[in-house]
């Protein structure tokens, strides 16, 4: 019993350690002045309002959504069908996708940034497209996980076979039967990918830099100029991540529930 109490200490420490920085940053976004006192001198909405009146923040936000959303969309269009076909029709090649997933996961942005610059910087390709392409590949682990899990939980192969047996064409079976069944898991994977890309800084900063100012680059600039604006950016970022995480967990729960029922 005494040992359990010891373990509890670690658990409480873990929660405090994970939440204190978040709470402090959020509080800072609403603090009038917080330089000399332990707690803020007063509370205000001034910083958040200033942030939303700053057109360069709105534009940066738009660019981040466009870049991350575009990459997720491309992944859904080109990677998901490939995963479907390999898992359902060529299962013996699935280990190659798994190998690709591990490799993609193993190489951090800073390594890929070197490769991108060496391969494409001198041949006139717009580097933002190169970053977009690497973004599509870098979310492969999340997209694969989402697709694979939902295919497994609805028994994809049998579902397709059954639909075709009942007279549906391959295309019909795919779009009318399989896709609706795996949609929640797929959507959860897409949102997770979006939230990972939304926080990406290394590639965009090293390869493109301030020519394409995303939210992360905007935040990096504000870090040295205005702490209050920076914390407002982090506040907005956290709220967005919170909403995404909530939707993802709802979707995952629903697709798990569907598999059990």
């Amino acid at each position: 019993m005494r040992k359990k109490g010891f373990a509890d200490l670690f658990f409480v420490f873990l929660l405090l350690y994970l939440f204190l920085p978040i709470l402090a940053t959020m509080l800072y976004a609403f603090a009038t002045n917080w330089n000399k006192t332990v707690l803020p001198e007063g509370l205000t909405f001034k910083w958040i309002a200033t942030l939303f009146q700053d057109s360069s923040f709105i534009e940066a936000f738009g660019r981040s959504v466009l870049l991350s959303g575009g990459a997720v969309l491309l992944a859904l269009l080109f990677i998901v069908p490939a995963i479907f076909v390999i898992v359902l029709y060529f299962p013996k090649y699935e280990k190659w996708i798994q190998a690709a997933v591990v490799m993609v996961y193993a190489f951090p942005g800073v390594i890929l940034a070197v490769g991108l610059i060496r391969a494409y910087a001198h041949i006139g390709v717009p580097m933002i497209l190169a970053v977009l392409g690497v973004y599509v590949i870098s979310i492969l682990p999340y997209i694969y996980q989402g697709t694979r899990n939902s295919l497994r939980s609805v028994n994809g192969k049998q579902l397709l076979d059954a639909a075709e047996l009942l007279g549906a064409s391959k295309a019909q079976a795919f779009t009318k039967v399989l896709l609706p069944a795996v949609y929640p898991g797929l959507f959860a994977g897409a949102l997770l990918s979006f939230s990972v890309l939304f926080g990406e800084f290394v590639l965009i900063n090293l390869v493109v830099g301030s020519r394409f100012e995303t939210v992360q680059i905007y935040l990096m600039k504000k870090l040295s100029t205005s702490g209050h604006i920076a914390s407002s950016v982090v506040f907005v970022y956290l709220v967005l991540m919170g909403i995404l995480t909530f939707i993802i967990s709802m979707l995952t729960k629903r697709s798990k529930g569907a598999a059990k029922a």
């Binding site: 402090a24 990406e200 992360q216 870090l223």
Partner: peptide, 17 residues
């Protein structure tokens, strides 16, 4: 949720603390 909290935002949070 906190695993999304990394990179620049995380560094800033520690500056606040």
């Amino acid at each position: 949720l906190t695993s999304n909290f990394s990179g620049i935002p995380l560094a800033f949070a520690f500056i606040v603390l």
